[in-house]
């Protein structure tokens, strides 16, 4: 028996909207730790890791570890039927091939339930090593989204270079080139506008723009994004959800031949 109650359906809606275009089907794993997902995109270049911690839920009952295969597009369709301030309850009986999403309005005068078919998904779990990254950048999530979108219109790849002074995003395409430098800056009005650099040594890596743009669909989840890079490692683009957990995207860098 599984029963998870979350007061803000809006959060789960944002989570689904941020990954449904990158990953088609995925297993949601439910354990004492929380409600989690690890999935690769169809070309196995990017990986999504989601954790919604059990203590972030209003009610969390998971009698034993279970894995539920879901089509993320269909799950997003069902969640779109909830209002952001509805309470959502995810329910599944042992051995059942369906999951139920129950939505309750804040005044309790509207209660809806949506039953969705589960699917068998043969997915590989990858072991993500704990790594010390050479460069970590924390910056405004919306600024990062803007940069990826802008550079994506000019070139297919983005070079991200971190130095002590700041982070540089560059691209090159048929029509020309573009460079954006975000200097480290903590003297800001709003905390989320700060650009913070933690760097052991300078790092410069090349990534496919379209994946970076896809990751920024998670922008509504957090004010800041954390970008971690090391040579010979996938980049990590992380959106932390206050008290609830995180959404992490991993992307393999492009390698010069």
């Amino acid at each position: 028996m599984l029963e998870l109650r979350l007061t803000q359906a809006g959060l789960l809606k944002k989570v689904l909207e941020s990954i449904k275009d990158l990953v088609t089907d995925a297993n949601f794993d439910c354990s004492a730790t929380g409600f989690s997902l690890q999935a690769m995109d169809s070309s196995h270049v990017a990986l999504v890791a989601l954790l919604l911690r059990s203590d972030g839920f209003e009610h969390y009952r998971c009698d034993h570890n279970i894995s539920m295969g879901m089509n993320l597009g269909n799950m997003a369709k069902m969640l779109r039927c909830a209002s952001d301030d509805d309470t959502v309850t995810i329910k599944a009986d042992d051995g059942s091939d369906t999951v139920t999403f129950m939505f309750e309005s804040p005044s309790q005068d509207k209660i809806s339930d949506y039953e969705m078919k589960l699917m068998d998904i043969d997915s590989e779990h990858l072991g993500i090593p704990e790594a010390e990254y050479q460069a970590i950048v924390r910056m405004s999530a919306s600024e990062f989204a803007r940069i990826c979108k802008d550079l994506g219109t000019i070139g297919d790849t983005v070079i991200i270079s971190v130095t002590k002074e700041g982070v540089q995003f560059s691209t090159k395409g048929d029509i020309g080139t573009a460079n954006i430098i975000c200097r480290k800056n903590t003297a800001v009005d709003k905390k989320e506008e700060a650009t913070v650099i933690e760097m052991a040594e300078p790092v410069s890596l090349t990534f496919a723009s379209r994946y970076l743009i896809a990751f920024t669909k998670a922008t509504p989840l957090a004010g800041q994004v954390t970008i971690s890079m090391s040579y010979d490692m996938p980049i990590v683009v992380e959106y932390k959800m206050e008290t609830m957990g995180y959404m992490r995207f991993y992307l393999a860098p492009k390698i010069e031949e």
Binding site: H44, V45, E124, H125, G127, M233, P234, Y250, K254
Partner: peptide
């Protein structure tokens, strides 16, 4: 030119 490796070439399967 540059090539795009997969994520599985960095992280091992469990």
């Amino acid at each position: 030119g540059s090539k795009q490796p997969t994520i599985t070439s960095f992280f091992s399967k469990l």
